[in-house]
Amino acid sequence: MRLWGEFAKGIYKENPVFKQALGMCPFLAVTTSVENALGMGAASTFVVVCSNFLVSVLRKLIPRKVRIPCYIVIIATFVTLVDMVMNAYAPQLHRSLGIFIPLIVVNCMILGRAEGFANKNTVIKSLADGFGMGVGFTLAMILIASFREILGNGTWLAVNVLGERFHNQPVLIAILAPGAFIIMGFILGTFNILERRKAGR
């Protein structure tokens, strides 16, 4: 039961994006389509689960003084792994995520989990935590990507949902850089209102 808690906290209560404002760069950059959001989400989840696992396994062996460089090497290794495998088996996705695949290394969410959780918790707990954070990150990306893809292209996961006329004259700004910032602002504002309601009751 407690394990479920470690997993579930990443989804809403400690959501890396909405509650901790971590991993903003890939979050804003690749969410032009739900497909990209899913791809980036899967890649990031894989890396955070693996790095949490390894950091937790090695937590008694890695000396405190060099722990950060060690974590960085571990994370970078898994990122490179994802990079190679994705390039070999999902080249289309690899091309559309582009530079943001190597940049998973500097997603503060991942180093944050290694340093803030995995290095002082058991392997099982760390796995649950990493998985929860990864899923929370993915869900957050799917949320904003849905807004952006539907408004900016009239499609959801490449399926036309708003009709041909909208698809030909969409609200283009939603897909462009300014749209990412503005939509994110309003999503965060909505969360604020929800929080306020909950606190008020």
Binding site: I62, C70, V73, A76, T77, M84
Partner: peptide, 25 residues
């Protein structure tokens, strides 16, 4: 030495995966 060991293990692992994926890519 520990840091070097970690980096070495990482490099060897990646070298192995690269030898598998590079021809496919």
């Amino acid at each position: 030495l520990i840091l070097m060991l970690v980096a070495l293990v990482a490099a060897v692992a990646l070298g192995f995966v690269n030898s598998k994926t590079a021809p496919i890519i």
